[in-house]
Amino acid sequence: MTEVLTYLLLIFLVVCAISVARSRDLLAAVIIFAAYSLVMAILWQLLAAPDVAITEAALGAGVTTLLLIAAIAKTRRQE
């Protein structure tokens, strides 16, 4: 059961990473990147690294997204 979940999350992770790289809309890319970080946090927890999972959830999904959105607000939205 856990293995199926892990594989699903890994597939989702790869799809997220590719779509971040391919997206022309930078705001959409940032939001997909937040989803990537959230899935990464769950995966860290499944890999028995709760320390990294907490940091990834707070920094990757939270602060990095906000700082990148602030940077987009100062510049252009389209690549």
Partner: peptide, 21 residues
Amino acid sequence: SPGGGFSGGAIIGASMILYAL
């Protein structure tokens, strides 16, 4: 327990950013 200065500080900092946002 898991976590520490960096993780907890990141959570508190994110909460203050949430307030300002």
